[in-house]
Design a protein around this nucleic acid. Sequence first.
DNA 1: CTCAAAAATCGTAATCATTCCTATTTACAA
DNA 2: TTGTAAATAGGAATGATTACGATTTTTGAG
Lengths: 137, 137
Amino acid sequence: MNLQDATNILKEKGYKTTGKRKDILEFFSSEDGYRCAKDLIAYLENKYGAISFDTIYRNLHLYHQLGILEKTNLNGEKHFRLSCSHHHHHHFICKDCGKTKEIDICPMDTAAAKLTNYEIDDHKFEIYGRCPACQHA
Amino acid sequence: MNLQDATNILKEKGYKTTGKRKDILEFFSSEDGYRCAKDLIAYLENKYGAISFDTIYRNLHLYHQLGILEKTNLNGEKHFRLSCSHHHHHHFICKDCGKTKEIDICPMDTAAAKLTNYEIDDHKFEIYGRCPACQHA
DNA sequence: CTCAAAAATCGTAATCATTCCTATTTACAA
DNA sequence: TTGTAAATAGGAATGATTACGATTTTTGAG
């Protein structure tokens, strides 16, 4: 998922392309890992001086709903990153910097076989720790 | 993990066995799945009329820290269940009733091999959906 | 280009889960 | 039984998120 893809999705679905929406996409493009609302607010306040919570959360939800952002919960706070839509995979997530590394292992195929009669909607496989860079810092 | 195991752990570590602590353990013993602070409060208020948040959260944390309760985050709310300490496994979690089913698959071994130089502290593998009972309700 | 309708944003108040604080009560070891 | 450290009460404070009426902006038709 890149900036252009995301903008196309917005247009296709009939959402308006506003300056703030572009800024939010640019923020997540420039960041490489999971970021929370607070991080985004800091980025936008740097440019605009003040920003409404409504704008922040409405757009985070919209982007998540459109599949543009992935969401996860890190110690009680929602975090987002640009979707990597090319293929299904999971992530190692650094607890210090939020950066991620793709893990191409997905245990769902074998797991689903053991869940006959269960309706499966979603799953999560995440590994938490510290990336090489943060271990040295 | 059963009620007796949990009580023993408390004693061993020098924590006092109070009436409320026993009630909390009984609540989680009687429930079969992930429950949140709100559920616990409802249960205890039924018995005591009122209960301090402090008591609820302090004890939830204590039990989690002692390995008596497992914790997970379900739509921004912390949920707990009695630890199943006999062996390492993961869970299917019903979105409707919170009940769980053990999954004996853990992808960590193969995943860790792909993360040399990464410090791995923790991992989560959860499957979400609806259990057979809730599909019929 | 202009204008109106719909959508988006603003500023702020409200909500909800959780944490924190001080006074009081309780468990339990001596 | 008694002293004391630990636990609880009751409520205020915090922090993330949601809600809402008023205002502004985007966009597309004319």
